[in-house]
Design a protein around this nucleic acid. Structure first.
Length: 473
RNA sequence: GAUGGUAUAGCCAAGUGGUAAGGCAUGGGUCUGCAACACCCUGAUCGUCGGUUCGAAUCCGAUUACCAUCUCCA
């Protein structure tokens, strides 16, 4: 029984899927005009963890997340770089994939682009106008926010308060075209110098920022989706406007649950990291010298709604934890492969493993409480180590435990299973055998020399009751 | 101004009425020929003030500090 915190109601609610066993979720993706920064990554990681937990729990998840590939910033960045908008967005779409893969962020089921849905967007806008929710004004089309009942509910903003802010910010031209300052654009007429435009009933132009998500969520997931997610800063105006448009269009609830992740903060005063403040670190740069698994663990194990302070200390600690989890897995995996492991189940250890699974799910069922889940995973890791040191172990139960452990850790996006290695390692095995021989002859000077020589090459030796094993540093 | 969030050990952090999980770091110990791996042990009365209660980190009031949103932003 999974409970999620719904921004709309500000309470934890029991999650009930529209279609039993299936979760349809839409997560707003980045605008692709630069490398993603770790704030973008945090959002992707938060919802990837949520997705993985639904899948771990037996749900089929249809995970749709877009790229915004047309807007003012893209036009500006492309112009500055002297390349086409499409060349720019293609580059950073690829960069997104390259940066998120090592973070174990699963590819979206569908990754739609705004520019590939222009016809649907225009049809959507036509319908909004037909229903009286939108109006054309000199090539632009605006949505009548006040006509939509309860506008601003998601962000708990009062429309009259919003009007004051809106009136102060808008430029005169836009203000003059709007019937009401709180109205927002669903279609933007092209400026004369803009090359990236599409023909529409209102002349050449391009979609407003919010409309693409409404259109694509509808197209790929249906009129009412289970979960809509994104960063906290999207609650207003982006999601607020999506709700207004979508519900005006379909006449029914857009999304049953709204989930918002907290920000990444940086510096001593925990300031929000953002592109506009210029205080961001791109994942592209960071991965040059930070272990991707550690970064993933650090970001996944802070509860998704809490602010996440990005610090060197947090990374260092995450490196330790990843190592501990991988070592625990390796320790028992090594033992399970040994000839002395029996092929009958171990009842007591099976019960322990089952208890860990129950506790893990209990923690994650509570709005994805990863902190408590990590407590379980830590206990689990200790149990693997203890079991690996027992005089007698069951290969069957050991493997069962390893699989369950790996599955739980994979929910937070960390892979504890060793990567396949094609390098020729027979020379290491020869050195280990030579050292064993020296030890047997009590020639410890020689044994230690071999160990030191291997260490110099990044090979660590570990002696166990079942023989010596090695691993890379 | 409006609307939210946060404040627990050196650091990260769980915990919504019953006497403070877990991790990292520190120190000690076991295992080892010595190491490595692993295991065991080791720490806080919960921003401040007041109230309710047999009992509060948890509820109420006040107060302080920091962060965020209010049409660029994950």
């Amino acid at each position: 029984m999974i409970h999620v915190f719904n921004t709309m109601t500000r309470t934890k609610e029991l999650f009930t899927a529209i279609q039993p066993g299936v979760v349809n979720m839409y997560v707003c993706g980045p605008t692709v005009y630069n490398y993603i920064h770790i704030g973008n990554a945090r959002s992707a990681i938060a919802f990837d963890t949520i997705r993985r937990y639904f899948e771990y729990s037996g749900y089929q998840v249809n995970y749709v997340s877009n790229f915004t590939d047309v807007d003012d910033k893209i036009i500006k960045a492309a112009h500055e770089a002297g390349i086409s908008e499409q060349a720019l967005t293609t580059k950073f779409e690829q960069a997104f994939n390259d940066d998120t893969k090592p973070l174990n962020i699963k590819p979206a089921t569908v990754r739609p682009l705004a520019t590939e849905h222009i016809d649907e967007i225009i049809a959507f806008v036509v319908d909004l106008i037909a229903k009286g929710y939108a109006y054309e004004a000199q090539g632009d089309v605006y949505f009548r926010a006040r006509k939509f009942p309860d506008y601003g509910h998601l962000a708990h903003q009062n429309i009259d308060d919003l009007e004051i802010g809106a009136s102060e910010r808008l430029d005169d031209g836009e203000l003059a075209r709007k019937e009401d300052p709180v109205d927002f654009a669903v279609w933007k007429g092209a400026n004369p110098d803009e090359a990236i435009t599409w023909a529409s009933p209102w002349g050449p132009g391009r979609p407003g920022w919010h409309i693409e998500c409404s259109v694509m969520a509808l197209k790929y997931l249906g009129t009412t989706i289970d979960i809509h997610g994104g960063g906290q800063d999207l609650a207003f105006p982006h999601h607020t406007n999506e709700i207004a448009q979508s519900e005006a269009h379909t006449g029914t609830t857009f999304a049953n649950y709204w989930l918002h992740n907290g920000f990444v903060t940086v510096g001593d005063d925990n300031e929000k990291m953002s592109k506009s403040l210029g205080n961001f670190v791109t994942v592209h740069d960071l991965l040059q010298d930070v272990d991707a698994q550690a970064l993933r663990l650090m970001m996944a194990t802070t509860h998704y709604r809490r602010p996440l302070a990005y610090t060197k200390v947090a990374i260092t600690e995450a490196i330790q934890i990843v190592k501990r989890l991988q070592t625990a897995y390796a320790n028992l995996a090594f033992r399970v492969q040994q000839a002395d492991a029996v092929q009958t189940p171990d009842v007591d250890f099976t019960a322990q493993v089952n208890a860990f699974k129950v506790n893990f799910m209990q923690a994650m069922d509570d709005d994805f409480n990863v902190a408590n889940a990590m407590t379980v995973i830590n206990d689990f890791a200790t149990a693997l180590n203890v079991y690996a040191n027992q005089a007698a172990v069951s290969a069957l139960t050991g493997q069962l435990a390893l699989d369950e452990f790996a599955a739980e850790v994979m929910v937070i996006g960390v892979d504890v299973q060793p990567v396949a290695n094609d390098d020729d390692t027979s020379w290491i095995d020869e050195q280990v055998a030579a050292r064993d021989a020296a030890k047997k002859a009590k020639d410890y000077a020689q044994a230690d020399a071999i160990r030191a020589a291997l260490k110099a090459q990044g090979i660590i030796l570990e002696d166990t009751a079942q023989g010596t094993r090695w691993k890379k540093e």
